[in-house]
Design a protein around this nucleic acid. Structure first.
Length: 425
RNA sequence: GGAGGGGUACUCAAGCGGUCGAAGAGGACGGAUUGCUAAUCCGUUGUAGGGGCUUCACCUCUACCGUGGGUUCAAAUCCCACCCCCUCCGCCA
């Protein structure tokens, strides 16, 4: 959430900056409501002040046993209570309307973010390794998985429906190995604190991380218990320190959290997205940081490198891309995507999205820190990044490592977990 | 799921219709004293939103005692609903 005060003080500038993301954004209504709200606050507080004074007087009279006089004063109060109630209602209504607008406004893009309304206008920052060259027609991950009995989509569909995975055999071992390898790597090599958070969260948590209200329809819901199923550990990890005041020397806090992730993916489909590309359920190791504002961009770079470490260790060709203004998530001020090469589709797919949300989530979740001994608490900056999402990584690994003889070489770091160096048909 | 207890400021905790933004203790901070440490004494110690004034000072008002409603001239205090925590029972990986 943006700071309303900031909007009020520089409406034109903020609007211009928001329009870099979406030219349709306008702050007119919000400012209008805000002005009316402040006017009403003036009135209602004046009346409340009067009410408080009179009430105090009544109390005094009653104590002095001047009941008759007290009754008279009470009668004089007349409709004051009703007026206050009416104004309070109007105020609540205005505030709801403002919140509706404010809750859906995205974060301000960082100055380094390319301004474009075309999501393909990303800036390629780095490319690691060469595109693999195959002397044969590379098989798709579905074909490979079939050969090795790694995935069983028909039965997964029978159990849960389409777009749910059933890993089996080598597939299950590889998937589990990947998770363990990534989790352990971020903890041991990059110093993150390992976390296994709840897979379900409440309304407040989803609001604080900015998933709600705008992206509610992407989330599975359990209405009887008013709980929602984790679509990314970003949400649950963000809420670890909700409504807390952290000490400056605790920061930065670095968490690596493993969860399964569940997304409804309503309205998304496509021939390209067959197999494991876009699932209702997938596994992810998520990196999350709470930092001081002045350190967040350095930490953003670091987090990106931490995620890239995994791809380097696995020896996969990938690129890091700075997203243009139109393509970032609501809370992000700056996002770098890591995209792996998928040979069978001759294109890159996102396996990680590393974002600096600055104080956008912290403001909603009231996550603060104390900069100095006597200093006032300030909002922290929050950062999140996949480190990484497995199902697409799974595809990249088996497709990129297939050999002319039809076998698949298991990357060195995963061999102990899988219990094999190579899968043979 | 059933029964009981409880949620008050940084922490603990009193208050159960008016003088309560809230006693007391601890902590933290500032000061005094001090050979060091400790102890003692004095003082300070919330957040948010309006307005004044104008800016990083200050004054003033309003709101906040788990959350949301209600009663009342007046609610931390009474009523209703909900949430969370603890104990016991039941169930259970």
């Amino acid at each position: 959430m943006l700071d309303l005060k900031l909007i009020r003080e520089n409406p034109k500038e903020i609007e211009r900056r928001l329009q870099r993301r979406d030219p349709a954004i306008s702050l007119g209504k919000l400012l209008e409501y805000d002005e009316e709200r402040r006017k009403i606050i003036g009135h209602v507080e004046e009346k409340k002040s009067l009410r408080n004074k009179v009430s105090e007087q009544v109390g005094k009279l009653k104590r002095e046993k001047k009941d008759a006089e007290a009754q008279k004063v009470i009668a004089e109060m007349g409709q004051l209570a009703d007026e206050i109630k009416a104004l309070d209602n109007k105020l609540a209504q205005l505030e709801t309307q403002m919140k509706d607008i404010l809750d859906r406004l995205p974060n301000l893009p960082h100055p380094s973010v390319p301004v474009s309304q075309n999501k393909f206008d990303q800036k390629i920052l780095r490319i690691h390794k060469e595109k693999p060259n195959f002397s044969f027609e590379p098989k798709t991950h579905l074909e490979l998985a079939e050969t090795f009995g790694m995935l069983d989509f028909p039965r997964a569909a029978k159990i849960a429906g389409s777009r749910f995975p059933l890993y089996r055999g080598w597939g299950a071992l590889l998937e589990m190995g990947l998770i363990q390898f990534m989790f352990k790597y971020q903890v041991e090599k990059n110093g993150y604190t390992p976390m296994i958070p709840p897979y379900l969260g409440n309304e407040e948590s989803f609001y604080a991380s900015s998933q709600f209200p705008k992206f509610r329809e992407q989330v599975y819901e359990i209405p009887e218990d008013k709980l929602f199923i984790n679509p990314t550990a970003e949400i649950v990890l963000c809420n670890v320190h909700r409504d807390e005041i952290l000490e400056a020397d605790q920061l930065p806090i670095n968490y690596a959290g493993y969860t399964a992730c569940f997304r409804r993916e309503a309205g998304t489909y496509g021939e390209e997205e067959r197999g494991l590309i876009r699932m209702h359920q997938f596994n992810k190791v998520e990196l999350f940081k709470f930092t001081k504002p002045e350190e967040s961009y350095a930490e953003h770079e670091k987090m990106c490198e931490d995620a890239e470490d995994i791809l380097k260790e696995l020896g996969i060709h990938y690129r890091a891309a700075l997203l243009p203004s139109c393509d970032m998530g609501l809370a992000a001020a700056k996002t770098i995507d890591l995209e792996v090469w998928i040979p069978s589709q001759n294109r890159y797919y996102e396996v990680s999205s590393v974002s600096n949300c600055e104080d956008f989530q912290a403001r909603r979740g009231n996550i603060r820190y104390r900069p100095g001994k006597d200093a006032k608490p300030q909002f922290v900056h929050t950062l999140n990044g996949s480190g990484l999402a497995t199902s697409r990584l799974f595809i990249a690994i088996i497709e990129n490592n297939q050999q002319p003889d039809g076998s698949v070489v298991i990357p060195e770091p995963l061999r102990d977990y899988v219990g094999a160096d190579r899968l043979k048909p």
